[in-house]
Design a protein around this nucleic acid. Structure first.
Length: 560
RNA sequence: UGCCCCAUGGUGUAAUGGUAACACACCGGUUUUUGGUACCGUUUUUCCAGGUUCGAGUCCUGGUGGGGCAACCA
């Protein structure tokens, strides 16, 4: 049996693994493990779903089991194939395969209808013709019992006839519903004669107009699990109160006993996860779509430059438990840096260029200097960088005032190493009319060449740079968190939109990048030396136009 | 005036009646041709009160605090 261990070889098992271990020890279902991931196709998957995906697919893999992808499509007015396609793509991108196949709750509409008929025949369901308001009023409150519907004890034959007429479209939307006859005084509100079916004359993205009655979540989910032989039906905490009903339907139908278990969903600080609210960001144009790189959607994270590996590692690290939690978004960033540090090719790009003129370097000369593609990975090899008299460096890397012991970069009187090239020493600088530095003049030390430095000069700082003649122009988009408040969604009197960070996107259009980046492909991550991890933007980058997104900065240890 | 779930450093997660640990974050240091990485170190923890026990983060009782539960949503 696969065992996940730490360095000491001790096993660390979360509570669901422990439940499964115990179930297998008892020989439940012959030790079989079968899970499912059941999204409703009414929106895009986000990082919170990634946790559920990792749990369900991960557990199946760990136990040599099976996992189904099931679209929970019981509400046609909210669902669409657009979302089905996007969900499939996102799960596959994360690196998971639904080895139990792709399923739809709508595949079971006929079976579910039969189940409903059986409950009616058993005297356990009835057609209620009251208004929604009346039914709600009879529901009681958590502290007071409900009262029975006047239709509660209508004869089986009449229920059967009415339910058949509902299906045939003989009754108007809202005129009647099918309800389970359980207990109007139950302490659990979900057991007070819950709805099983409602009438909706709506076009369903898969069944078209074949149906005008649709099962409610509670009357569909457990039975779908059962029909698929799901052994462990894992969902979030908010469904804990639904479990008795889940079990009630399965028991009273006498079908395969899937078991529901609940774990805490993922919450991230500085982030909203509600589909409704994410939709508002899209609709109000705050972001440029569901895949805006600032969105917590998987498509957004992908476009931002997140890797599937980093997201899976993040999900592993957040753990699985029953406590409500708020994960620091820094942990997500850590997982990305961790992966990309090991795998991303280093390249040089200057975001806010000023010219660096090497006054003692021969005019018209260019030399090609080798540089490591990834110092963490010798097998990544080297490539060559052009170097000549005129270079670009970062405006931030040169200051005239405020120079102190902690400043390692260029300044009057200072020397710095140009990464993979020479050590240069300040000579002079040029400012424009408004006092901004436009050029820095330096002299290089020919015997300080990278890899064969005999100069004996100690330069504390190392700068990235790009040679002017070979530089490619690029647009670079820098992102910050979308919200400036840790819990934008958690304020009773204030709308989450009030907490939008006005500086969540900065577009730099005058960036200079080294030649290798001119061929950057969407999906390939790069580390821009000293700046962070970047990737070509899948939306705006085009033939002849370079656009990069910064996924995350490098950790900045500089306490200037 | 109900029912269900939960409570371990700043944030998460382990410890399954027997030395409270791991990761992230933070702070400090070493190395460094990325102020990155790597490595080392410091700081910080069992909600409260009783009980059971040789021994309780863990079991029991009662509090307190947090979350959830009323939709023709899932």
């Amino acid at each position: 049996m696969p065992v996940e261990g730490n360095e000491e070889g001790k096993t660390r098992r979360h509570f669901i693994q422990q439940i499964i271990d115990a179930d297998r020890e008892e020989g439940l279902h012959g030790g079989r493990v079968h899970t499912r991931f059941p999204p409703e196709p009414n929106g895009y998957l986000h990082i919170g779903h990634a946790k559920a995906i990792c749990v369900n697919f991960g557990l199946a893999a760990e136990y040599g089991g099976t996992v189904n992808l099931r679209f929970d499509d019981t509400n046609p007015v909210k669902e669409d194939t657009e979302y089905v396609d996007a969900i499939r793509e996102d799960i596959a991108w994360l690196g998971f395969e639904w080895n139990g196949g792709e399923h739809y709750t709508s595949d079971y509409f006929e079976t579910l209808y039969g189940y409903a008929v059986k409950l009616i025949e058993d005297g356990k369901a009835y057609v209620d013709e009251q208004s929604a308001e009346d039914i709600a009023a009879q529901k009681g409150t958590p502290t007071s019992p409900g009262t029975a519907s006047p239709f509660r004890d209508r004869p089986v034959e009449e229920n059967l006839r009415l339910f058949a007429e509902m299906r045939e479209g003989k009754h108007e939307e809202g005129s009647m519903v099918l309800r389970a006859k359980i207990d109007m005084a139950h302490a659990n509100m979900h057991m007070r004669d819950p709805f099983m079916y409602r009438i909706k004359f709506a076009h369903h993205h898969r069944t078209g107009d074949a149906w005008c009655i649709y099962p409610m979540y509670d009357f569909a989910h457990g039975q779908s699990d059962s029909l698929e032989g799901i052994t462990h039906s894992l969902c979030s905490l908010e469904f804990e109160n639904h479990r008795p009903l889940y079990d009630w339907y399965i028991e009273n139908l006498g079908i395969f006993p899937s078991k529901q278990r609940e774990f805490a969903r993922l919450n991230l600080n500085y982030t909203i996860m509600s589909k409704r609210k994410l939709l508002r960001l899209v609709e109000e144009g705050v972001v440029d779509g569901w895949d805006d790189p600032r969105m917590p959607t998987l498509s957004g994270l992908r476009r931002r430059g997140y890797t599937p590996e980093s997201i899976r590692e993040f999900c592993d690290r957040v753990g699985v438990a029953k406590r409500n939690n708020v994960i620091d978004v820094g942990l997500l960033e850590f997982a990305l840096r961790n992966h990309l540090n090991a795998t991303a090719t280093r390249a040089m790009a200057v975001l806010r260029p000023i010219k660096l003129v090497v006054t003692n370097y021969p005019e018209g000369q260019t030399e090609w200097l080798p540089t490591e593609n990834n110092p963490e990975d010798a097998s990544a090899g080297t490539r060559e960088l052009p170097f000549s008299r005129e270079l670009y460096i970062e405006a931030d890397d040169f200051i005239v005032e405020g120079v102190n012991k902690k400043w390692f970069r260029l300044a009057p009187g200072r020397s710095v190493r140009l990464k993979s090239a020479y050590i240069v020493t300040y000579v002079d600088h040029v400012t424009d009319a408004s006092g901004n530095v436009t050029e820095v003049h330096v002299e290089y030390h020919p015997n300080s060449k990278s890899g064969s430095d005999t100069s004996g000069i100690k330069a504390k700082g190392t700068l990235h740079w790009v040679e002017c003649n070979h530089a490619a122009d690029a647009e670079v988009r820098l992102y910050d968190r979308l919200f400036s408040n840790e819990n934008p969604d958690g304020h009773k009197d204030r709308d989450f939109m009030e907490f939008l960070n006005p500086e969540s996107l900065e577009v730099l259009t005058n960036c200079k990048v080294e030649p290798v980046l001119a061929d950057a492909q969407v999906g390939t991550p790069w580390q821009f030396t000293r700046l962070g991890y970047f990737t070509a933007d899948s939306k705006w980058a085009k033939e002849g136009k370079l656009v990069f997104n910064r996924a995350v900065t490098l950790k900045d240890g500089w306490k200037g």
